[in-house]
Amino acid sequence: MNNFTIEEINLLSIYNEGGKQGFAENINAALPYMDEDMRELAKRTLSKVETLSEEEYTELAALAADEV
């Protein structure tokens, strides 16, 4: 499950709100305001999150919160 980079975990900790769906909504809302590199990171993170179950996402989000 934890094949996320430090950058992806950081992004998760910033946009994590309202579970897996809330994270996806927050990232998608922010995409138009990101530069190309950040947009690529966000899309990669989102695609990884989409493969997780809600339970796996909750564990990952807790890990991200602990690292902040």
Score class of each variant (00 low, 15 high):
1 M>V: 12
1 M>K: 13
1 M>T: 12
2 N>S: 09
2 N>L: 12
3 N>F: 11
3 N>Q: 13
3 N>E: 15
3 N>C: 09
4 F>T: 15
4 F>R: 13
4 F>C: 08
4 F>N: 10
4 F>Q: 10
5 T>C: 05
5 T>S: 14
6 I>H: 14
6 I>L: 08
7 E>K: 11
9 I>M: 14
9 I>S: 07
11 L>Y: 13
12 L>P: 10
12 L>E: 02
12 L>T: 11
13 S>P: 06
13 S>M: 13
13 S>Y: 11
14 I>W: 14
14 I>M: 09
15 Y>E: 04
16 N>I: 02
17 E>C: 14
18 G>M: 06
18 G>W: 05
18 G>N: 07
19 G>T: 00
20 K>A: 02
20 K>L: 00
20 K>F: 00
22 G>R: 10
22 G>S: 00
22 G>W: 02
22 G>V: 04
22 G>T: 05
22 G>A: 06
23 F>R: 06
24 A>L: 11
24 A>K: 10
25 E>R: 14
27 I>D: 01
27 I>R: 02
27 I>H: 02
28 N>G: 02
28 N>M: 08
28 N>L: 01
29 A>E: 03
29 A>T: 01
30 A>S: 03
31 L>R: 07
31 L>W: 01
32 P>G: 02
32 P>C: 02
33 Y>P: 04
33 Y>A: 13
34 M>I: 05
34 M>S: 05
35 D>T: 07
36 E>M: 13
36 E>I: 05
37 D>K: 11
37 D>F: 09
37 D>E: 10
39 R>S: 12
39 R>E: 13
39 R>P: 02
40 E>P: 05
41 L>R: 03
42 A>I: 00
42 A>H: 01
43 K>N: 11
43 K>R: 13
44 R>N: 12
44 R>L: 12
45 T>Y: 12
45 T>L: 08
45 T>R: 06
45 T>M: 15
46 L>K: 10
46 L>I: 07
47 S>Q: 15
48 K>S: 15
49 V>D: 06
49 V>N: 08
50 E>Q: 15
51 T>Q: 10
51 T>M: 08
51 T>G: 04
52 L>H: 01
52 L>M: 12
52 L>I: 00
53 S>E: 00
54 E>A: 05
55 E>V: 07
56 E>G: 01
56 E>C: 03
57 Y>M: 01
57 Y>I: 05
57 Y>A: 04
57 Y>R: 07
57 Y>G: 14
58 T>I: 09
59 E>H: 06
59 E>A: 09
60 L>I: 04
61 A>M: 05
61 A>D: 03
62 A>H: 06
62 A>D: 09
63 L>D: 09
63 L>F: 08
64 A>T: 06
65 A>E: 14
67 E>G: 07
68 V>E: 11
68 V>W: 08
